[in-house]
Design a protein around this nucleic acid. Structure first.
Lengths: 229, 229
DNA sequence: TGGGCAGTGATTGTATACGATTTTGAGGGG
DNA sequence: CCCCTCAAAATCGTATACAATCACTGCCCA
């Protein structure tokens, strides 16, 4: 069962994980082509598994597949970006409240450790990794709320948020959200559901306010995009 | 299955559509095995496309894939069922409100025609088709609200609701929801967002209240399920 | 000189083949 | 009579091969 398979090969899900991490850490950027042959060569597997992985990620909205043209890292439009955060605004505040009511001491410690890792990454200058962890914090809350269905949705939305941030973030400097996350954990520790709900609502509004979602033409990553987009 | 497959062939998405319809209309039931060879033979395509289709449906939660064992129509647990309706309760009321504020006369007419089709199906004794249409009504609202992201989520949730209904519905008699849908359309026509939101909230509670979600052991569709589930 | 057009290379779409895992059923032993 | 073991059959997992489509280059012609 423990598929350590270092020698032999990756499974499709491994590829999804690796690619997803790369996107979350902004090592591969929206619009980038994900050639089946190329990805397959990187991981040492045939195109069969790569195709599975890419289609899987397409369902999560992280890549977009164009028939006979291939897979690309998704490039959410301004409208997509707004929708993502509108959906998060519907799901996450109440989920945070539920989490506050159910959270255990162990979970609180886990979240604190999570924030610590965010800080470490930031201090180490690994902004991408910090961003990834920061997103996963939100997924953890859904897990703690014991809502698997919503957790999957939030995971998707956080994923796409990473793309949105890559495209529309205003400043290149740090995303000093750790303060907001700290405040949330405090509310959780007090089992203060209402506070958690309000904090999450404000946190999401904060995030959106730091985006530049004016209806300007999108940054083209290639000439093709400029002409066909 | 009357599958006189047109000459050329189906695409993977066609297969998804056909299978999904079959599930929504309760012609294939939770737990049923979906053998790759069998499905492929029915549609006249190779296993390649069938696998694509099944994996696609798995992402939507409509089928579950067990490694080396195959694909089965998903069989949501009681907890899954609760989660589905809790997620719907977070998403749909506000979406209904947004729809009420944006809806056009053409959309109103479309929804009314939709309800009419529901009635026709019921009158014709096609309960499955009526159920499918009834679910799609909720998806249409998200479309009218101009929220694609949420629309996809609601589509998934409605899908799974169909499975939940197949497993946990109390009475075998008609799902007389058309009244609730009528009231919603009325609110939409008046652009009364608050009323629409409240009606939707109540409608969802109504639906849940008609389910039997006590923590009884699930009906086993096979011996294996009884022993491994 | 600029645009249309055909040929060529590259990439994806689909089917088939082979290997791995699971399931099933029969036979022998307790 | 039940259970255990083992082999055969069925089913899924992955790789490879071939077909279809697209992108690009170079040529020809207006």
């Amino acid at each position: 069962m423990s598929n350590v398979t270092s020698p032999a090969g990756y499974t499709a899900e491994d590829i999804v994980t690796r690619l997803t991490n790369a996107v979350h850490e902004h090592r591969v950027l929206p619009g980038m082509k994900l050639s089946e042959d190329e990805v397959g060569e990187v991981f040492g597997v045939s195109r069969t598994l790569v195709r599975q992985a890419l289609r899987s990620m397409a369902h999560g909205g992280l890549v977009s597949i164009e028939r006979n043209r291939g897979a690309f890292v998704a490039k959410p439009s301004v409208k997509d970006a707004r929708e993502v955060f509108e959906a998060r605004a519907l799901l996450e505040p109440q989920t945070a409240r539920a989490a506050a009511e159910r959270i255990t001491a162990r979970d609180v410690a886990s979240l604190e450790a999570h924030i610590k890792r965010e800080h470490s990454a930031l201090d180490a200058g690994e902004a991408g990794k910090a961003l990834k962890l920061s997103g996963h914090f939100h997924v953890e809350i859904a897990r703690i709320a014991n809502q698997r269905t919503i957790e999957v949705f939030i995971r998707q939305l956080v994923s796409r948020s990473s793309l949105v941030i890559a495209l529309y973030w205003r400043r290149r400097t740090a995303l000093c959200e750790s303060h907001a996350h700290h405040a949330l954990v405090d509310a959780f520790a007090r089992h203060d559901g209402r506070a958690a709900e309000e904090l999450m609502k404000g946190h999401l509004l904060d995030l959106v306010s730091q985006l530049d979602l004016r209806d300007v033409p999108e940054k083209a990553v290639s000439l093709r995009d400029a002409l066909t987009g």
